[in-house]
Simulated assay, not measured.
Amino acid sequence: MRGAWLVVAWCGWATLAQAATPTDDVLARGARDGSAPAWAISVATPAGWTRDCCTYARAIGVNAVLYQGEWSGKPQRVMVLNVWPRELGTLADEVQADRKRYLQHDPAGKASTFVVRHPAMPCEASVYEGSDHVDDVLVFCDPGAASGVRLSWSMAFDDADPARQALLDDFMRVVVASRWMKDTAAPATHAP
């Protein structure tokens, strides 16, 4: 039943996704890598969330994180941005490979997917309901072959979290407002 609720909540974002507007708020940067140009990911940060690209994000091996309050080191309630070189043929391949890994790790878990209507690039979402009572939302996006990369936003939360809807609302605002662009600034691994 939880899964159905999540999908309905996420599908409700379809209309809002089309209304998202671009921002110039660079959150993370990546240096040129082979034929892939240097890139930047920009997004406005929701009120009450802290942006981090260089301290906690680096420590856990991701490009950026957004979190509320103090950094706890726990994955719940943290929005995570990952950017990596394109390796699989399609966005659907990325989603399928991730789903397979998840279900191998948690055979009793449940997974569902749906398309996110991002205004600037194709995205697909997965909702994972863990047997550990921690749910994960993961959105893969493809900024196009010329970018040389794919990106994802993810967030975990306890399945009984009373702030669940507010967390999902903020998460989807971030996802649909994210923009990939060629970075014309000096090459860097992450934004300062």
Rank of each mutant, 00 (worst) to 15 (best):
G109K: 07
D132K: 12
P37W: 07
Q104H: 08
H190T: 11
M155D: 07
M181A: 11
L6F: 15
L27R: 02
A166Y: 00
A28R: 00
V149R: 15
P37F: 09
T113M: 13
A64I: 01
R51C: 02
L151M: 15
K74Q: 13
A188I: 03
V174C: 04
R173Q: 12
F157H: 13
M181V: 04
N63I: 00
G89A: 14
A28D: 02
L81P: 08
V65S: 03
P162G: 06
V176A: 15
W84P: 01
A186M: 05
Q96G: 01
A185K: 06
D183E: 03
A120K: 12
A145T: 11
C54L: 05
A92I: 04
G144F: 08
D132S: 10
V95K: 03
P22C: 00
A145Q: 10
V174G: 07
M172W: 08
S154V: 01
H190D: 11
S152I: 05
P75W: 03
A186P: 01
H133G: 02
S42G: 06
S131K: 01
A28H: 05
T45Y: 00
T45G: 01
A191K: 11
K182C: 01
E94G: 01
D132T: 15
A14W: 14
L66R: 00
V134L: 10
N82M: 10
D161A: 13
V127E: 09
D24V: 08
A20L: 00
V80M: 14
D106Y: 05
P37K: 07
A92E: 14
W71V: 00
G130S: 15
K74G: 08
M121V: 00
A92K: 09
W10V: 06
P162F: 02
A111R: 02
T15H: 07
P75V: 11
P75M: 10
E94S: 03
A19H: 10
P37Y: 08
E70N: 05
S147M: 03
V8K: 11
A177R: 12
E70Y: 07
D132F: 10
S72M: 04
T90V: 05
P75N: 11
A125V: 12
W180I: 05
C53S: 12
R173L: 07
P46N: 04
G130N: 06
R77G: 09
G69S: 05
